[in-house]
Nucleic acid binder design. Structure first.
Lengths: 121, 121, 121, 121
DNA sequence: GTGGTCTAGACCACG
DNA sequence: GTGGTCTAGACCACA
């Protein structure tokens, strides 16, 4: 369900967070769906429960999930995603595009890639 | 010339690397130009030379600079930038766009932002 | 009558307690009025009766309600509210104001907010 | 320097966070000042370093402090305090005042208390 | 020396 | 059974 890379410089909890977010974005987990319990995920990934919990906290801080103590964590609706995350994304987008332009791509070419990739969904 | 933010979570050497790359991308430093010496930068930024050295090594690994023994470091031409860096950028771009779409933006809106930002250059 | 928010970090019994207190404070339930029975509330909110029971006990400890064996629970008069609750409120008030002042608000501005909010009742 | 109450229902890390925030608000720690290191505070309070670190993370999330890895944590300026914290405070203020009014205090009396308390500073 | 991460294992509140 | 908190102890990156 989730792929971890221990050789990656990114901390485990962040990889878990990003993986869960990806599942939500791609629709594999829909708004309101229950995320796997901390214990279950820590078991299946062979990771300490504290590390998983940290990932869930970070995901909640971004607005992609909410937690009900004693019940579990659930996927939130897109509208609940934090503004900070939105700004972060736009910043990431712009800096990538700016560098790609330096490397020779035109804005048009980049948009073409985005459209083609959209159709492949 | 370079702005460091100690409050930023990124390590200093990475901020130096990103700062130098930005100077190259924006054209402030042109291909073939000599980059400031490790000693000069470490002095003007009040930073340990080892930290600067590390930034230069990282920048060279990306292909944005090359070092001539006894001469110093110089900005490389865009064609020398590593394929790894290119793939990394495209990956960054796609994941940001995919998430922005989940958050309600259309590909058209995203392209509009990119075009508008290009004009502001 | 009462709104529960499962996404709220506060435990359910506390939300029930706060909700009932709010009904009393706003005058929706007047002093001497009978509060809904544990069974009735647990039914309409689809919540375990033990949870409701706990909320009633907490409300009674604050002095906002009293229980008559075999009759049910009733809203108390303001004079019966415990001194502990009063001190707690004043402490909450002062600490909030002190912090708001640190953040740049003057005592006058704060009082203005309170007066305006009072008129809106 | 900080008082902890193990009998309190509030978690330790929250008590530490609130205590540090209080030191900043009262001016005992000024903007830019270095907060005690995680290890130093954990030693003087006889608390696990992980718990202290959690308090620092929470304080940073509120905007009252920022952390420089390898250097330490520092008090931020009031302008950096998050909007969320500001809203939280106003909400806390209003609910306390509303209940105090039910208990017989007028808005004028409350403002008097605030003004008197301000003079005592 | 500093913060950042991770593990192992424990106890508690909640419903 | 669930998440929330805490402890003890360890290793790493950074400057």
């Amino acid at each position: 369900m989730l792929q971890l890379n221990y050789r990656d410089a990114r901390p485990i909890y962040e990889q878990v967070k990003d993986g869960l977010r990806r599942l939500i974005i791609t629709g594999a987990i829909k708004a309101g769906d229950k995320l796997p319990s901390v214990r279950a995920l820590s078991g299946s990934l062979a990771i300490n429960p504290n590390t998983i919990q940290r990932a869930y906290e970070a995901l909640e801080a971004e607005g992609y999930a909410y937690t009900v103590a004693g019940k579990g964590s659930f996927a939130a609706v897109p509208e609940d995603v934090s503004d900070g995350r939105r700004e972060e994304l736009l910043e990431k987008l712009k800096s990538a595009v700016q560098e790609l332009r330096y490397l020779g791509m035109t804005t048009e070419e980049i948009c073409e890639i985005l459209k083609k990739e959209e159709d492949e969904r």
